[in-house]
Structure formats: structure tokens, C-alpha cells
């Protein structure tokens, strides 16, 4: 693995303004703003897999979509392979899309029901004018064979409704891969699949990562898959990254209290091992009303008075980054 940085995200923010009824807008006089991604910075090295883990509502999906410009960032910079993605507009951005793609969570919804599977996968090639008709078909059939969608030429003419969830997700991955991109955002690619199919998909993703020299941003709430596929892991809470470190470090010794809680929620398959169970207080707060100071203090079992007042910055703790006052 080279140490060259492939993707750098710098102070990325994404805010959504909620639609407010006009009466409320007049009387309360302000818009409600959701800070889905709030000042997030990280980098991914070439060939690396960075995992983003967090609860539902932590903004990890929005982060993934913003990084490849499916969602317009409010502010911040995204530099991919030496090119500033945030500067691209219109046609240039559209052309550039062959170099990065996304795998969505729901394979049932991410395929056009009125398009044959072969056409779905060949469409990115057609859009970017890659290869002749014959070459496209050959490449797709080859990919189908490889992805165990056999007999390939039969799958080529099927409609998505005739495919199982695992097969559909393989089609989605094939579509994401067909233009030979350098970077793929995987947004909980296994969350909607049966457990038995999950490991197949993860294995496939690891396989193609080496074969096609990919870099992944892997978004998940499933710590087990994160442990399986990621090199480094960032933990997200309410739109901010609270800890980011190598996989080994973060699983062996989580530093941020939130990471600790997440890790202690992983079941241990040995009833004799007793461990301290940390359970966060209450629910994740609303993103429209983020707590002052450290945004985790309302649920943190170790919170001190400083946590209520001052927002902690990410700081270097023995080679890893943690945003916490008490570490």
C-alpha cells in the first residue's frame, strides 16, 4: 500500500434547511437548520479502505453522498487524486463521474425496474462513450461470470425483479465498477441483505479492491463488517468525526467514550467473559438542536463541566485523532 493520499476532505459541511410552515416562519422568524455534516476533515490513502461508523442519524450517509458530489456541500473542500472536486461544475463534473461511483444500501430500489440488467450495467459505458457495443457486452459478460451471475448471457436479458437481493447487489457493484473507477463509496452495502449473503458481498468487495486498485469509503453501522473490510475507521456522532484511527487500535483500545460504548455493544461469543457494559443515556439528540460544548456530553457517562462549555477539537493522541476533553 502506498502512502500517497488519494482523497482529502477538508472542513466539509453540509447543512439542510428544513421546510418550515409559513406561519411558524413568521412568528418564530428563523429557519431550522440541520447540520448533517459539520466540519469534517479526513484523508484516505490510495488503496485504503476508510470505514465510517456511527448510529442512524449521525450523518454518515450524507457524508458519503457529499464526498462524491451527489449532494452539494455547504462549504469545505474535497480533493480527489489531486483534483479539487468541489470546484467542478456541470458538464465537467458529469464527465468526471466515471472515476468514482457509489453503491447504495438498498439493492431493491437502486435498479431501474424497466431496464434489463445488461443495459443497467452497460449504461455508464454508453454515457461516457467507452468501447464499442461488442466490447461493452463482452466486458459485462466477463464481469457477470466473475460475480457469479451465471449463466451470464441469461442474466444480461433479465429484469431486476427476477433477481434476489444478493444478485441485485452484485449487479449494483458491477455497475459501480464497469467504468474502472478509482474510488467507490459503499453506503451500507450489506445492511439490507441476509446474513448469509453479506459475507459473500464483502468478500467480493475485497477481491475487486485489489484487482481493480480501488479506494473505498465504507459507510456502515455494522462494526463486524467494518472490522472485516476496513483499514482505518472514523467514528461519527451527530455530523462530526469524534475519533479516527487504525482498525487494530480502535478495536483494541477505543479512546473516545462514544467509541467505547459502540465497542462494548459488540456481543462476545463467550459467556464467561464479563465486561463492563456501557450504555449511552437516552437517544441521539436531534440534528436541528445540537447540544452546546461537546455534542456527546448529554449521553456521555464521563462528562465533566468543561464538556458542557467547550467543543473539543480532534487532537493527536499517540498517532490517532480523538475529539474529547478527558482523553
Amino acid at each position: 500500500m502506498s502512502s500517497e493520499v488519494f482523497l482529502r476532505v477538508d472542513r466539509l459541511k453540509k447543512e439542510f434547511s428544513l421546510k418550515v410552515a409559513w406561519l411558524e416562519a413568521i412568528f418564530k422568524g428563523k429557519k431550522r437548520i440541520v447540520k448533517a455534516v459539520d466540519d469534517v476533515s479526513f484523508y484516505i490513502k490510495k488503496g485504503e479502505t476508510l470505514g465510517i461508523v456511527g448510529e442512524s442519524g449521525s450523518g454518515k450517509t450524507t457524508l458519503g453522498r457529499t464526498v462524491i458530489r451527489l449532494v452539494e456541500p455547504t462549504s469545505g473542500k474535497i480533493i480527489m487524486d489531486g483534483m479539487e472536486l468541489t470546484q467542478l461544475k456541470g458538464e465537467t463534473l458529469r464527465r468526471e463521474r466515471r472515476n468514482f461511483s457509489i453503491i447504495f444500501q438498498d439493492p431493491m430500489a437502486s435498479l431501474n425496474p424497466y431496464m434489463r440488467v445488461g443495459k443497467i450495467v452497460s449504461h455508464p459505458l454508453e454515457i461516457h462513450n467507452i468501447g464499442t457495443k461488442q466490447e461493452r457486452k463482452e466486458k459485462i459478460l466477463w464481469l457477470f461470470e466473475k460475480f457469479n451471475l451465471t449463466p451470464a448471457d441469461e442474466f444480461y436479458n433479465r429484469f431486476p425483479k427476477h433477481l434476489s437481493g444478493g444478485q441485485r447487489q452484485r449487479v449494483v457493484i458491477a455497475r459501480a465498477l464497469i467504468t474502472n473507477p478509482k474510488f467507490i463509496v459503499a453506503d451500507e452495502p450489506t445492511a439490507m441483505l441476509d446474513v448469509s449473503v453479506r459475507s459473500q458481498i464483502l468478500k467480493l468487495m475485497i477481491e475487486i479492491k485489489y484487482e481493480f486498485k480501488l479506494t473505498y469509503l465504507f459507510i456502515t453501522h455494522d462494526l463486524a463488517s467494518a472490522k472485516y473490510i476496513c483499514d482505518r475507521i472514523g467514528v461519527m456522532y451527530l455530523g462530526k468525526i469524534v475519533e479516527i484511527a487504525n482498525k487494530e487500535d480502535i478495536f483494541k483500545e477505543p479512546l473516545h467514550p462514544y467509541t467505547k460504548i459502540l465497542m462494548s455493544s459488540i456481543p462476545i461469543p463467550d459467556p464467561n467473559i464479563k465486561r463492563e457494559k456501557l450504555i449511552p443515556k437516552g437517544e441521539i439528540p436531534s440534528a436541528t438542536n445540537i447540544p452546546t460544548g461537546c455534542r456527546f456530553h448529554t449521553r456521555c457517562p464521563f462528562a465533566k463541566s468543561i464538556c458542557r462549555e467547550k467543543e473539543p477539537e480532534l487532537k493527536d493522541v499517540g498517532g490517532r485523532l480523538v475529539a474529547c476533553h478527558i482523553v
Binding site: 463521474r97 449504461h123 455508464p124
Partner: peptide
């Protein structure tokens, strides 16, 4: 729908999205 967002993510033109998806 997600398949429309997918079309956008693979770089489909607006006209392609409207007429094919």
C-alpha cells in the same frame, strides 16, 4: 427513487434521466 440517484451518480445527462429512468 434510488435508481434515479444512481443514474445521476453514473453521470447520466438530465435528459437521459428523464426519458430513460
Amino acid at each position: 427513487e434510488l435508481y434515479v440517484e444512481s443514474a445521476y451518480s453514473i453521470g447520466a445527462k438530465t435528459s437521459t434521466i428523464i426519458f430513460k429512468y
